[in-house]
Amino acid sequence: MTDSTKDEAYIALKNVRKSYKIGIEPIPIFSGLDLTIPRSDFVAVMGPSGSGKSTLLNMLAGIDLPDAGELRIGGNRLDRMGETARSAWRAHNMGIVFQFYNLLPMLNAAENVELPLLLKPLSARERRVRVGKVLDLVGLSGREKQYPAMMSGGQQQRIGIARAIVADPELLLCDEPTGDLDRKSADEILDMLRFLNRELGKTVVMVTHDPQAALYARRTLHLDKGSFVEENRAA
């Protein structure tokens, strides 16, 4: 990644409004949120429950849409895309890492990692090579045939990361990726995310409650009641 590309506004939210209806009452989440994230940044988003972290992540993943405002990622207006286009966009541009790994129990490690590649026009051999590479990258070579139930939480999360990056997306969204792990495993996972950001140039947005996890990011945004109230930059 060059410095010039680093400074591009890869993710841009402008005056985003979002509310949910509970009963007949609309509950506002964001009332004019602005956010800019350059390419290859590593941003941690922190905040209390109900502050809008998950809603923000869902919007960045194209899973949820703003009621109003502009949501642009990599030059694409996600808020103007239909569901099918957003699915295709997710398949090609974004990887997602969940708190509870969300691996499919009937598939082994290699097959779980291979899932996003089924959406790409690749031969079986090309898929196998890519899966082998990312499993090697996350340190799980030789465990291709193991099923999720046979793995520790840390190993499952490594598989989750491998699945998120196997299609080589620019954007990596992480929803409390260490929330279910012990400190040692959490640090290993965070080291891996930092490696993906610094060495491979992935743009990482990580929602977390853990201040130690946030230290791995280049900057930390604090969200409260639908607004960013503070920003810390890593030393």
């Binding site: 569901e83 099918t84 699915s87 499919l104 996003p116 959406l119 699945r163 299609a167």
Partner: peptide
């Protein structure tokens, strides 16, 4: 239901 949610979040379309 949960797994279909996961697949969709990975980019599986409605058609797939």
């Amino acid at each position: 239901t949960f797994e279909f949610g996961v697949l969709k979040s990975l980019g599986f379309s409605r058609t797939s």
